[in-house]
Amino acid sequence: MNIFRLAGDMTHLASVLVLLLKIHTIKSCAGISLKTQELYALVFATRYLDIFTNYISFYNTIMKLIFLGSSFSIVWYIKRHKIVHRSYDKDQDTFRHWFIVLPCLVLALLINERFTFKEVMWTFSLYLEAVAILPQLVLLQRTRNIDNLTGQYVFLLGAYRALYILNWIYRYFTEDHYIHWITWIAGLVQTLLYADFFYYYFQSWKNNAKLELPA
């Protein structure tokens, strides 16, 4: 464990807690893409298949349980909660899952480190995580106004992956045989997807203006 990875995990944890806080306190999910939340639940479900068979550490198991629990409860809130689901804007959140899930599945079947079910599922979860934010970014472009909790959510998600890249660089130089192209490329693609959002986020923060994404 290094400081970059710990900071990355804490930032990732903060992003889901910010989201749960928003939904739970103001009983609204306005501006949140259910599609992205469902994709993240799928990411964790396919990545943590070995949560009970491959014990790494107490920290690792606890964090996996938190991520699984929070992502599925966010989906439940938006879909099932009697008050929250009314603020879900399904006419705007129209990104088709399959445009994302199928290419990731095909790619995971073609490019993986071992052709076993768990390895393919794990690789699929990496590719899926890289693009899972797309429905949310599309929704933000459409609704154009970004309330600061949603902005913080996307910002923290991007920051977590950027910190993970620093972690991979650190581990590459400090551990031998630490070479995992699939993880690195998927992580890099994911971080680049956030790059333009970061740009506008900092612009609005610097000018102390409301965050507006260009059409």
Binding site: R5, D9, H12, D50, N54, I56, S57, N60, M63, K64, F67, W122, Y164, N167, E175, H177, Y178, H180, T183
Partner: peptide, 10 residues
């Protein structure tokens, strides 16, 4: 397990 060091990440 040491088989897959990368799987120690979340």
């Amino acid at each position: 397990n040491s088989r897959h060091p990368r799987k120690d990440e979340l």
